[in-house]
Each structure stands twice: as C-alpha cells, then as structure tokens.
C-alpha cells in the first residue's frame, strides 16, 4: 500500500502538510453547504412570524444536552490530537473512541427527540419551519455519522501507531461539525 503514495503527497510547498491543507478546503466547501441552508432558513425565519410559534414546540433541554455532548466529544477529540502529537497512538485511539461515543450518544438522543416530535404530529411536511428543522439537523446528523465512521477507522490505525497525523485531521473535521451545531442550536431551539 505504501508504495502507492506518490511523492506529490509528501511535498509541502505551501508550508502546510498536505492532509491538513486538504481538510481545511473540505471545511471551506462545507461552510457554503451549511451556509446555503442556514441563509435560506434565516430569510424565512425573519419573514414569517409563524416560525417563532412553531419553534416553541422544540425541546430546548434536549438541544442543550446534545450541545453539551458535542462540546465534550470535541474535548476528547482534541485530547486525542494531543496524544497523537506526543506519539502515543494507543492513548489517541482511546480518546477517539470516547469521541465516537459522544457522536453515537448525540445520534441516539436525536432519534428519541425526533421520534417524540413526529409522534406529536410535527413531521417534515408540517410547515416550512419543520422542513428546515429536519433538513438542517438531518444534514448535520449525516456529518456526525460520517465523522464517527471515519473516526473508528482512524482509531483502529492509531492503535497500531499508523497514520497518527490523521488523528488531527479527523479532529479538525469533528470540531467543524461541532461548530455547525453551535449555530444550529440557537437557530432551531432558542429563537422562539
């Protein structure tokens, strides 16, 4: 496998390692994806009074708990990065697994939350607010799931002291997912 990696990958004319550079470009492209849907949401939210009434039916406490979960998992991810930088792959893998646990907990809580809302009759087609609510949070949840899957792969490698630089890269991505939620939380739950 290692012979497949070209010399191009090892060069660093910009002064940044290739992986870190690419992750920031990924994040740049993700900013505009989430930016597009949140910009649309804000326009509708400001134009329609009904959004505030609908938003009152969301559960702020569940949203706050999920924010807490993601912030904590971010802490674990950055600890994994620190461990990887000091060369301790096993420790990095352990922290990455904690982060994954946070991601899984986030998804579980979200499932219960959505189930209860759908049970009360608020589905994706109920009104524009609920359409945005499920679409934006769903898009974010997809990123959480993808992050967890990638993180398990990176952790498995880190455990064997391979590709430790990837611990940082998945961490940066994970923090970005966290930042998106930091903005989604007030937009969807608090602005009533």
């Amino acid at each position: 496998m290692s012979s497949a990696r070209p010399i191009a990958t090892t060069r660093s004319a910009s002064g940044m390692p290739t992986g870190r550079l690419a992750v920031w470009w990924v994040i740049a492209s993700e900013i505009v994806i989430f930016g597009g849907i949140l910009t649309s949401y804000v326009m509708y939210r400001l134009a329609h009074d009904s959004f505030a009434e609908q938003a009152a039916h969301t559960n702020t406490w569940i949203g706050a708990f999920n924010t807490f979960v993601l912030l904590t998992s971010s802490l674990m991810a950055v600890q994994a990065h620190k461990a990887a930088d000091s060369g301790d792959g096993a420790k990095a893998a352990r922290f990455l697994h904690y982060t994954c646990l946070g991601g899984i907990l986030f998804i579980l809580v979200k499932s219960f939350e959505w189930a209860s809302e759908i049970g009360r009759g608020y589905t994706i087609s109920s009104s524009p607010f609920w359409s945005f609510y499920y679409t934006a949070a769903g898009l974010h949840a997809l990123h959480v799931i993808a992050g967890v899957v990638i993180m398990f792969i990176v952790a498995a490698a880190a455990k064997q002291y391979r590709d430790l630089h990837r611990v940082e890269l998945i961490g940066v991505y994970w923090h970005f997912v966290d930042v998106v939620w930091i903005f989604l939380f007030p937009l969807l739950y608090i602005a009533k």
């Binding site: 505009v32 849907i37 910009t39 649309s40 087609s125 524009p128 359409s131 945005f132 679409t135 898009l139």
Partner: peptide
C-alpha cells in the same frame, strides 16, 4: 456550489417528502 447542494436537498424533499421549501 454549496448553497445549490443545500437547495438540491430541499428540492428533492419538496418532490418526495411533500415539504414546502
């Protein structure tokens, strides 16, 4: 392309899930 990716998701939901974006 980002906003259009978001828009494409919204349009598919309009078509298939009866949303009203």
């Amino acid at each position: 392309v980002g906003p259009l990716v978001a828009g494409a998701v919204m349009l598919i939901f309009d078509q298939t899930l009866n949303t009203a974006f």
